[in-house]
Every structure is written in structure tokens, then in C-alpha cells.
Design a protein around this nucleic acid. Sequence first.
DNA 1: ATTATTTGTTCTACAATGTTGTATAAAATG
DNA 2: CATTTTATACAACATTGTAGAACAAATAAT
Lengths: 115, 115
Amino acid sequence: MSENRLGELEEVLMLIVGILEEKAYALNITEEYEAQADRKVAIGAVHTTLNRLEKKGFLTSEMGGATAERGGRRKRIYSITASGHRALANVRDFRLTLWKQFPAFAEGKLKFVLA
Amino acid sequence: MSENRLGELEEVLMLIVGILEEKAYALNITEEYEAQADRKVAIGAVHTTLNRLEKKGFLTSEMGGATAERGGRRKRIYSITASGHRALANVRDFRLTLWKQFPAFAEGKLKFVLA
DNA sequence: ATTATTTGTTCTACAATGTTGTATAAAATG
DNA sequence: CATTTTATACAACATTGTAGAACAAATAAT
């Protein structure tokens, strides 16, 4: 019964949380997303999605301390749970399996090679 | 303005269409999905999604001939358009870029290696 | 110290995508 | 031509994605 589905934005935000680590709070995640995806996203969309991922148990969060920056309000820092990590690994493996079977993609047309 | 987004199911069904080639019709796509994803999906869900992908210009379809099987009604065969292929390649490259930056995933923990 | 400005989160409403169930259609068999 | 099998199409509902406004807390300016 491992309800394991991840939407497209959900999956990408999880990965960005994993990349940003202790700097993974909504505003920063939004900026990172826009930089990497070359695409705009509303901050509200990110908050909503992070909340839902937390409710599903794929992410946890805790309030960090306030920084000494101008307006440096306390941030809610997100991190990936064990269950979230498993879900991510599953979707990744599934997609890799499919890509391997897709003739147009499998035959040495990959620009990136992992591992 | 390249409206390039692909939902999770949309993306996977596109890949399966690419894998099945001339056998890519809804019922067969459904069975292939269930076999590969180890997960159930309603045939109606597949039809709806294929229709939407066609409307977006990522897939095309044409009716194939009736086969000589018992009950062999004519099938609607789907194939990927140039635009669909580009969209797929984009999401794949984007995700690979993210995975490479994700410490827990990037450090030799991959079971599958492409190319 | 009170007002403005900046960084940040929370809440509400709506659009797009995912899912289910049911109805319908066409071909082969008896 | 009724029954069975392989299929698609359609309608209703659930989940996920998106946008924007409201709210909160911290520093800076006056």
C-alpha cells in the first residue's frame, strides 16, 4: 500500500530541498527553482506544495533562527524524510528503466551520465 | 513561450508510447503501464491523458486496421510528435541536472547507468 | 519609538491534471 | 442476429498546480 505518487512539481521541489539542505526554505527554494528551471513559479505555489509534501510525510520542517539580515525573519527549513527519499528513488528508478527501453533516448543520445 | 510542462502520468505514458511504437494503443498502453509500474491504472485515465497530450500537440494518433483477433476492434495508434519529443528530452535533462546536484543521489548510489 | 521597508509565511480561490465509472462501438463466433 | 471480446468515448469527481492577497516579524530610517 505504499502510496508513492509524486506530482511533477512535487518531485522537483523535493530534489531542490535535497540540494539546498540547511538553506531549504520556501523563498530560497522558489529562487533556486526559477534559476534552474528557467521558469517562473509563484511563491504561493511553492508553499502549498511544500505543505502537502509534509502532510504526506515526504518532508519535515522546523523553524530556523532569525538571521541578522535586514528583514531576516525566521525561516521554515525543510528536509527529506526516509519515506520521501524512498519515493524519490522509486520514481527515478522507474523513469530510468523506461528511458532505457525507449529507442530514441537509449541509443547514446544522453548528454548526462550519472555515476 | 514554450509551454512545456508534463504531468507525472503524462510523462510516463509518453515514454510508454515511445517504447511500444506501432503497438501504442490505449488498452495495450494500460497493460504495459501496469506491468512496468507495478501499479494499477484505469483505462479511462489512460484515454483521458492520451487525449490531452494529443490536444497539446505532444502526440498524434490514427486509426489502425482491424486485426483478425476475436473482437478485434480497430485501435487508435499513438505516436510522439517532434514537439513531444523535445518536451520529453527537456524534462529528462532537467531532472538529470538536479539529480547530479543532489548529494544523496549523486555519489555512486545509482543502480542504473545510462549510455 | 513609530513608521517604512524587507524577508518571510499563511490562507483562500481557482485551473490543470489524475482517476473512476459507465456508456458505447465494432469485430468475431455461434 | 444475439453473444462475447476487444476497444474507445464521455461525464463526474479527486488531487495537484498556480496565483494573489493577507499577515507576521525583523531591521532601518526618521
